[in-house]
Every structure is written in C-alpha cells, then in structure tokens.
Amino acid sequence: MTPFHFTPGRLPLLVSIPHAGTQLTPEVEAGLSEAARGLPDTDWHIPQLFDFVRDLGASVLIGHFSRFVIDLNRPPDDQPLYTTATTGLYPETLFDGSPTFAPGKTPTAAQRAGYLADIWQPYHQQIQRELARLKAEYGYALLFDAHSIASVIPRLFEGRLPDLNIGTNGGQSCDAAVTQGLEAVCAAQNRYSWVVNGRFKGGYITRAYGRPEEKVQAVQLELAQLNYMDETPPFAWRQERASALQSVLKPLVKSFIERGKPA
C-alpha cells in the first residue's frame, strides 16, 4: 500500500491529514496490545470532515498508515515536541499511558528504520514538493495541518480540551494577520470553545514548514472529537454534529486562504 493519497488542487493551499491512517505493517499488527488493537488514538473521520476543502480548491494529502507504525507529525530524530506528556515517532504508549505493544512484540530497530524511509520520508517529501510547486505558481504557499483527539485525556491535559485548538508554534509558523483572522472567526461564534497555542501549539509539520519569512504560512488545528463523532469504540461518525462543526471549519479555512495571501 502506498504511504499516502494526494490530490492536487487549484489554490495555494495544502491540507495535510497525517493521523487518519489505519493501515498497519504485519509486524505492528501482530504486536499490538489488546488496548491498541482498536487504534484508539487515530484522528478518526478527519478526511470526511474536511472533504469540503476539495470544493474550495485545496490540495489534500492524507497519510495511510497508523501512527502506531510511525508518527508523521514527529521529527525524524524523535526529539520531544512538548515538555509535558506526549508520544514519540514510534509510539510505545497510548495517549492514556497504556502500552502500545504486547511484551516482547515491539518492532525491531531495522523495521522501524524501514518505516522512516518508506512511510515518513515519502509523506514529507510530498509536502515539500507541493509547497515548492505552490510557491512557484502563486508566489506563496499555505499549509493547514488537520487533527483531532479525544476531548478528555488526563495524561495529556487537565479537564476537557477546548473544542478548537489552533497552533502556530507560538506565532512563529504564520504571520500575525493570519492568526488574527482565525481568532476573529472563532470569536464570532459561541457554540465552540477555542484557544490559540494552548496545549497544542503545532507538531513537527507546522514547526518544520511554517516559514512566513519565506512566504509559507502554516497552522495546525486540533479538534475535540466529541463535536463530530463518538469518542468510544466503534468511533462512529455523527452527521448532525459534524455539519454544525463544519459551519465553523469552513470560515476558518477561508480566513486562512484570505489572510495568508501576501499584501
């Protein structure tokens, strides 16, 4: 199976969806713990939730493999992105702290090196190619990294996560005008709570490619899953909730497109 699915668009916008994949390698599938077999830390249904970006004209990149094989939003040297609890390039624990693999069933170093070369590298090479293409065609490029997570995970954050979590690497991955536009969209509604650079400031993708000084603007959006799906197995899609959430997601993406264009 190819490591990703890519659809080119007609706008200077690339939407990256690195954590929706459920494909497993044979050794990972054989080694998963009982707690991990249902792939609980997946960004369920995110391609469906953001399908509207295709109509807008965005390019879309979707990872095929589960983060339990390799996490596409972590640096290749596996350096921690947060000082608080997190998971690494090759997750050894679930978000709740349970082991990802049964005892003695962790993939070997050689197998994981293969995942880096055959899954992680191609995904990031595609990001780089597309951003370069967009810059060459439009003079600038926009990268929107789409994520979701269960709304309550005590190991990772206290209480319930805000509904909309915008990350700009502390303001370094995009211009202030971009952030201000996203904040204005969030402030114009009162259904969903929101925060900028709270618990989720942006993972490796946002931090590595967001270079406003080089005309590449990047933002990450981490969504609380209860607003569009069930957070317990089988993680069912909930159309009514999803439609309501999309009424805010669409203006957010449109604001990014409008504010991301150089003056």
Rank of each mutant, 00 (worst) to 15 (best):
R259D: 07
D55W: 11
R112C: 12
T108L: 01
F101N: 00
L164Y: 06
E137V: 15
Y90V: 04
L226T: 15
Y209Q: 08
D175T: 13
A109Y: 03
I127Q: 02
V53F: 02
D77G: 03
H45L: 00
D96H: 06
F68P: 07
G260Y: 11
I257C: 12
F235V: 00
I127N: 04
E183L: 12
R37T: 13
M229R: 08
V195P: 09
A109I: 10
E92P: 07
A58F: 06
I127M: 01
G171L: 09
A208V: 10
T22Y: 08
Y82C: 09
P212K: 03
A35C: 10
L94W: 01
E92H: 14
L221A: 12
A109K: 13
G170C: 02
E92T: 14
F101I: 00
M1T: 13
Q125K: 07
N190L: 06
A132E: 14
P47K: 03
P212A: 04
F50E: 01
D78A: 09
P26W: 09
L39A: 10
K135T: 11
A113I: 00
R155A: 11
Q239Y: 05
L164F: 08
G260N: 12
Y138W: 15
F144E: 00
L134E: 13
E231D: 07
V15R: 06
E213Q: 15
Y138L: 03
K215N: 15
P40R: 02
P154A: 06
P154Q: 09
F68W: 10
T86P: 03
W44G: 06
H45D: 00
P233C: 03
Q225L: 11
A141P: 04
I166C: 01
I119A: 08
G198Y: 05
Q48E: 15
L72V: 03
T106R: 14
L245W: 07
S255C: 02
Y209F: 13
G31I: 11
M229C: 05
G210L: 03
Y209P: 02
Y209C: 08
K105F: 13
R74P: 04
E137K: 14
T42E: 06
P103F: 07
K201I: 13
Y140N: 06
G38W: 01
R238A: 09
T232H: 11
Q172T: 14
I205Y: 05
I62H: 09
L13W: 07
W44D: 07
R191Q: 15
A110M: 12
A35M: 11
N73H: 04
P233W: 02
W237P: 09
A177L: 12
R238F: 02
A35Q: 14
A109C: 06
E92A: 15
A85G: 08
T22L: 09
L14V: 09
T83A: 15
L226I: 15
T22D: 13
A184F: 05
V53S: 05
Y140H: 13
L182R: 05
Q225H: 10
G202S: 08
